[in-house]
Every structure is written in C-alpha cells, then in structure tokens.
Simulated scan of single mutants.
Amino acid sequence: MSKSDSNPYWRYYRCAFAIEKKLSNDSHIFKWVDEALLSEIEALTLRTEKLEQVVADITNGTMEVAKKMFEELQMKLEEESDQRVEEAVAEANYEMKEMMIIICFGCMIVVGCTKLVG
C-alpha cells in the first residue's frame, strides 16, 4: 500500500525480488492494482475472443462434416431409389413380354381353330 503524499493508501503490486532486497526504487516492476486488474481483464478478453473463434471454427468444421455426411447419405439413398425403380421397370417389362407371348400364342390358337372349323 502506498504511503506517498500524492497517492496515500493506494494499493499496488511490486516485484517480490525488490521487496526482499529492500530496494528503494519503487518503480521496479511496479503497477497500481486497478491498472493491473484492467490489464488482466483485457488479457482475458483477448483469450476469450480467441477461444470463441476456436469454438466457432470447430462448430463450422462440425457442421461441414455433418453436411458432407448428409450429402453422402442423400446420394446413397438416391442411388438405392434409382436401383429399385430400375428393378421394378425391368420386372414390369418381363411380365409384359410374357403377356404378349401368351396373347400372341392365344391368337394363333384362335385363328387355327377358326380355320379348322371353317
């Protein structure tokens, strides 16, 4: 605590080495408490801003990874859907060909029967 006439009872920090050696130079690593606290607050503000940026970067990175995973899943689902549609179309084509063969064969039988009767 200051005992000077200009700053009576003001609290300050001073180097422990200077106190141990009983140095008379009060400016040896000397800082008023209120200035030191402001400096600490400013330093913590900078650290907080840096940490917020790191969190934002991580969050953005996480969102990018999630977006990429979503796009990959969407592509996979589209491929599976396309494959199922192609399989359904192929099966319908096969069944239609079977029906056409049966109809053609039935028509030939009917024509043959009419020639035999007529």
Rank of each mutant, 00 (worst) to 15 (best):
S2F: 09
K3V: 07
K3R: 14
S4G: 09
S4M: 04
P8S: 03
Y9G: 03
Y9I: 01
Y12V: 01
Y13W: 14
R14L: 01
R14T: 02
E20L: 15
E20P: 05
H28E: 01
H28S: 03
F30V: 03
F30S: 00
K31G: 00
K31A: 02
V33R: 07
D34I: 11
L37Y: 12
L37P: 00
S39Y: 11
E40N: 11
I41G: 07
E42Q: 15
A43L: 09
T45A: 10
L46Q: 14
R47A: 07
E49L: 12
E52N: 15
V54W: 04
V55F: 12
D57E: 10
T59M: 06
N60G: 02
N60R: 10
N60A: 06
T62W: 04
A66I: 12
K68P: 00
E71D: 14
E72I: 11
L73I: 11
Q74F: 14
L77I: 12
L77G: 09
L77Q: 15
E80W: 13
S81T: 06
S81M: 06
D82G: 08
Q83D: 00
Q83F: 10
R84C: 00
R84L: 03
R84K: 14
V89D: 03
V89H: 11
Y94G: 00
Y94A: 02
Y94L: 02
M96A: 11
E98F: 06
M100N: 13
I102F: 05
C107P: 01
I109P: 03
V111I: 11
K115F: 07
V117S: 07
